[in-house]
Design a protein around this nucleic acid. Structure first.
Lengths: 155, 155
DNA sequence: TATTGTTATACTCTATAACTATA
DNA sequence: TATAGTTATAGAGTATAACAATA
């Protein structure tokens, strides 16, 4: 299980072992597995994965400025600008200028947005129940703890 | 603490708790954290993240057909076709038709490709040492085990 | 007929930089 | 001057379907 941190390349040892021991690749593959049924669900409702992330984040945190959404939803600001524009047109979110600092825009989820989330609750729950039953609830909780901690590492 | 649950989010039935307990979002955020320094490294060499994945996968598995690469590197076949075309032009990989089944194309890494990987070994190692020292080596191994298992769940 | 891979199209996200408005 | 966000543009991945070659 050595990741061969040191040493010259002349060893016959693979630098990081198989790619399944490469953290970025492992995270990506795991995400693809988990996301497949969710993508299917969203696709049926014509919502992109990104819009869904924005909706979830904004629903959770309440009023939020765009830089914060960008960070939480892993979307660059220029992408977010475009996404929010269409989401606003679709009445999923609303925007207003911050009174205290008029450079900032505050974004909120609308009733329509909340209803969109609610309308997916059941299918979403079923997907995660299935995942939990296959993967194990305790392991799932443990994994979430470990990922949360990893997110906070500052490299 | 970035994603603390603040504000009145309607205590009734939080479907999955905060988004940091949402597996897809947690996986994405963790990946962004880990990938940031790697992206920087690759960017300096003008290699895309996707090309890098293909290179790593093909280096590891040896001769491979494209469907297998597509799966391992999480890239759709149409995207992979284009990527391999440019990687072949750059002499990073080589392609040949399978003798047994001439529908299949076999892809291999070239010496140039291998050298490209080798030239990033040191920086790559340093990045992961830093990560391990902050996150903990045991935890890292445990996380990789859990992710590997998650990849294999069939929903 | 099914499978492997390619092509084509339309859409979307990314990277980057220049720009506006505000602080 | 610095920050929040927008706009513009080029590059790249995705989804989908139609297609060619082979099995």
């Amino acid at each position: 299980m050595d990741h061969a941190v040191n040493g010259p390349v002349n060893e016959a040892v693979k630098p990081f072992g198989p790619t399944s021991r490469s953290l970025p690749i492992a995270l990506l593959r795991a995400r693809e597995t988990v996301l497949a049924p969710i993508r299917e669900m969203l696709h049926a409702s014509n919502i992109s994965e990104q819009k869904w992330r924005v909706l979830r984040v904004v629903e959770e945190a309440g009023e939020m400025e765009q830089t914060a959404i960008s960070l939480a939803a892993c979307l660059k600001l220029p992408s977010l600008t475009r996404i929010l524009r269409t989401m606003e047109a679709e009445k999923l979110i609303s925007r207003k200028t911050d009174k205290q600092d008029r450079r900032r825009t505050l974004v909120q989820i609308t009733e329509v947005g909340r209803m969109l989330i609610e309308s997916h609750l059941n299918r979403n729950s079923r997907i995660f129940s299935r995942l939990e039953s296959q993967y194990g609830r305790d392991k799932m909780d443990q994994l979430l703890d470990m990922l949360e901690e990893l997110q906070q590492v500052r490299l």
